[in-house]
């Protein structure tokens, strides 16, 4: 995994490797000897979805805007760095067709202390929900629906 100025950002159709993501952030900081905390957040595909008539999802399809997706992730990572003193930061997001239990997103934040790592990881996820060019569609054998924007996500992002 490639880090540029402490950041590793990727949007991919490949399965996410959570263990490798954690290790890469830990090792990025190891040389400096100043890493005291790593927070790992993983978002998963749920099988149960209330927007579908039978409540069961078979495929979660993630569309994105390739020319803007990674750039918009980099922007929120830089914003996090301006608020907290952070070590390595990794944000990886799946696109394409996912199935229940697949990892959708992995956010890993290294810092000297846990408070910065927890806060920055939550900040990144809250901002990612409202600012990164990704759109979800839920599908099963009978229907497909685009996931509606949630006001609660906007409220969470706006609270920072």
């Amino acid at each position: 995994m490639v880090f540029e100025q402490g950041n590793c950002v990727a949007v991919t159709q490949q399965m996410l490797d959570v263990a490798a993501a954690y290790t890469s952030v830990r090792d990025y900081e190891c040389d400096r000897g100043d890493l005291g905390a790593v927070v790992v957040f993983v978002g998963l595909v749920r099988e149960f979805d209330n927007s579908l008539a039978d409540g069961r999802l078979q495929i979660l399809r993630l569309q994105h805007y390739p020319e803007l997706t990674e750039a918009s992730i980099h922007a929120i990572v830089e914003q996090a760095r301006s608020r907290w003193q952070l070590g390595g930061v990794l944000v990886q997001h799946r696109v394409g067709d996912l199935v229940p239990t697949d990892e959708i997103v992995v956010v890993v934040v290294g810092a000297r202390h846990r408070a910065e790592a927890f806060d920055a990881a939550r900040f990144l996820m809250d901002q990612l929900k409202t600012r990164v060019m990704l759109w979800k569609q839920v599908l099963n054998a009978d229907e497909s629906k685009w996931v509606a924007f949630k006001q609660s996500d906007a409220d969470a992002a706006g609270a920072w």
């Binding site: 990164v132 060019m133 759109w135």
Partner: peptide, 10 residues
Amino acid sequence: VALLPPVTGG
């Protein structure tokens, strides 16, 4: 021109 509805990633 790209039309971008409210995002729903994450």
